[in-house]
Amino acid sequence: MGRQTIRYTVLALLLAAGSTTAITLHQLPPTTVEQWQLAARQGRQPALWQLWAAAYLGNRHAQWVVGDYLVSQRPRQAEGSAWLRRAAQQGEGHAALRLGELALAGTLDGGADYPQARHWFKQAAATQASAHYQLALLYKNGRGGPADAELALAELQQAAAGGVAQARFLLANAYLNGDGVPRDEAQAIQLLQQAASAGHPAAMQALALAYQRGDLGLPQDPQRAANYFSAAAEAIEDGPRLH
């Protein structure tokens, strides 16, 4: 059965069941869909049929959730990617971001597809701060296109401003080393503290080490060093965090 046929069948069934349901599912706002995502990720079946129905009816948020759910299951990755593309084409930023991440991860047979990654992250960057971070790395390392240090820095700054902890961590390094920006220890410390607040273990460790030795313009403070080390120990136990 073609997708269009499925769509109209579902629509017809729902219209038979209750005409407002179909329209509501099509227009469902992101917050409700986010709750479905929470449910779907936990494999709670009753939530899934509503998601599928909404996805078939063209709801881009539902398409993103369905796609995200499927790509996490290896055998259905291609199917999931297709849903993500539909969502991305309708401007769903999360879907574009996920497609970029999939392109970076590559498949078991092939390596990363950097040009594809650049394409998707550029699209996602409209709404997703993480996309700016990924673009920063691609531009910096000349992947999927020419290297461009200035553009990389601009993307990094956008990502940091958008709250991406790892971007803040890298930007802090840039300020510490005067790498593309003027050397500014105070700015670096502020960025490290923001990243640490967001639970970034390496940022916590950087601050711990600085307080331990009295580096980076910070006073030697064994108490604060110990606090940051214990925070890092807690943060790493809570699972690996990159952004």
């Binding site: 390392n141 992947r143 961590f169 080393n177 990159l242």
Partner: peptide, 12 residues
């Protein structure tokens, strides 16, 4: 993740 600012080590 980039600790110590080692070249090429930026999380990528």
């Amino acid at each position: 993740s980039g600790g110590g600012s080692f070249p090429g080590l930026d999380g990528s």
